[in-house]
Amino acid sequence: MRERQAHQSAIEPATQNARPFLHGAELEAVRTVLDSGQYGHGEVTERFEQALAAFLGVPDVVAVASGTAALHIGLVAAGIGPGDEVIVPSMTFCATVQAIEATGARPRFAEVDPDTLCITSQNVLEAITPATRAVMPVLYGGRPVDLTAIHGELAIRNITIVEDAAHAFGSFCGSRRVGATGLVTCFSFGPIKNLTCGQGGAIVPRSLEEATHARRMRLLGMVEPPAERARSTSYRVEGFGLRAQMSQINAAIGLVQLEYFPTMEAQRKDLWRDYTRALKNVDGVALVDVDVEQSVPSLCAVRVPGRDRVFEIMRSRDIGVGAHYPPNHLQPAFSRWHRPLPVTEQIGSEIMTLPFHPAMGPHEVSAVVSALEGALR
C-alpha cells in the first residue's frame, strides 16, 4: 500500500466520500500568520497568487474567498451581467448556477456527454440562443473540456468562455495546465479539492483590465489595496464589490499545499487507476471517464442501475458514497429555466460517487468495490 502521511486521522478512509489531506507544515504556516496579527488580505495572499501564477504559467491570478466567489467575480469581470444568458451543464453543483444568477444573468441548461459528464461543442451549439453571452463548461471530476472546435463560432457571436474548474486544479488541456489556455478560469480551493486552502478560490483573468476589475470587486469596489489604505486617511470606491478576498490564513495553507502538489497529483492518479482496475469486471457499473492521463482526478463517479437502493445499502455498510450531483434544471430554485434534458435526467438517477481522497490506498479501494458488488447482488 502506498505510504500515507502519519498525521492524518485514523478514521477508516472508506467511511468518507472525501476529506481534506494535510501535510503537516500547514499548522506552522497558519501559526505564523496568527502570530502576525494580520489575518485579512495581505502579503501572504499575494505570495500565494504569485505562486499559483508561476505553477500555471500565466501572468496573473486573483485569489478570492471561495470557488463560488471566483465564478461570480470571473463572470462579471468578463462582462456578463443582467439580461445575459450563460450556457451551463445542469450536471454540476448548484454553486455554479447561483454564481450566474448573482450576476443578474440567467442559466441556459445544456446536456452533457454521458461518458464524461462534461459539456461538448455540440451540446453548446444546440443550446445557443440570441441572448447567449457566455458558456461555462464544468470540468467534471477534473477532466479538461476542449471547446476549441467552436471558438471561432463563439467569437463571431461575442460569446465568452468562463471555465468552472473547481474540480480541475492541476489538470492539463493538451500541453498546458487548465487555467493556462487563454480562457477565464475559476478554481475552488475548498476543503476537499485537489489543492485546499481550507476555503478559497482563484480566477485566472485574460487581461490586466479583467484582473484589475476582479481585484476591486473582491474588496468592496475599493481601488487602493489594503496596505495602501492603512497609510491613508481616505480611499476610493469605484463600483459594486463584495467582501470576497482570501485571508492570509487560507493563503498560508495554500502555499504549503502547492509545495506538495506533485505528491498529491501522483497519489490521485494512482488512486484513480486502482479504481479502474478494481471496477473493470464489475457488471452493470460504468465508470465516468476523467481522462486520467490529462487530469488530476477530483472524484470517482460511477453510473449504477438501481442507484438509490445501492446507495442506501452502501451507506448502511459505512461506505461513504455520495451523489454528485442532482441535476439543477430539476431544482425548485431554478424551475423557471427548466428545459427537457433526458440524458442528464437519466444520469441523475444513476450517478454515485465512491470514496476518493489521498488517504486511501488499494486496500480501501478493494473494500469499496467489494461492498459495491455485494450491494448490486
Rank of each mutant, 00 (worst) to 15 (best):
P358R: 09
R277K: 15
P326T: 07
W272M: 10
T344F: 01
R339D: 00
N281R: 13
F311H: 11
V296A: 12
L330W: 09
D291H: 07
F356P: 08
H324E: 12
R336S: 14
E345N: 01
K280T: 04
D274V: 03
R309C: 02
W272N: 11
F334N: 06
G320I: 09
V282Q: 12
V290H: 08
V302P: 08
A286V: 12
N281Q: 13
F334C: 05
L279P: 12
G284R: 03
S298A: 13
R303N: 12
H324Y: 13
V282I: 15
R307K: 03
D318E: 10
E293W: 02
P358C: 13
F356V: 07
L287M: 11
Q294F: 10
K280I: 02
V296M: 09
A286Y: 09
S349P: 01
V288A: 09
D270Y: 06
V302S: 10
E293S: 15
E312Q: 10
L299Y: 06
V321N: 05
L341N: 06
R317E: 12
P342H: 00
N281P: 02
S298K: 06
G348T: 02
R315F: 01
F311N: 00
L271Q: 15
H338G: 05
Q294M: 08
V296T: 13
G348R: 01
V321W: 04
F356W: 06
Q294V: 01
Y325A: 08
F356A: 09
R303D: 14
R303M: 14
V310C: 02
V292T: 13
A301C: 15
R309T: 15
M352D: 00
C300N: 13
I351F: 03
V310M: 04
V290P: 14
R339M: 01
A359F: 03
H338P: 03
V321H: 04
L287H: 12
I347W: 06
V343C: 04
W272T: 06
Y275S: 11
I319Q: 03
R315Y: 00
L271F: 12
G348I: 02
P327K: 04
V343N: 04
H338R: 14
I319L: 14
G306N: 10
P342S: 02
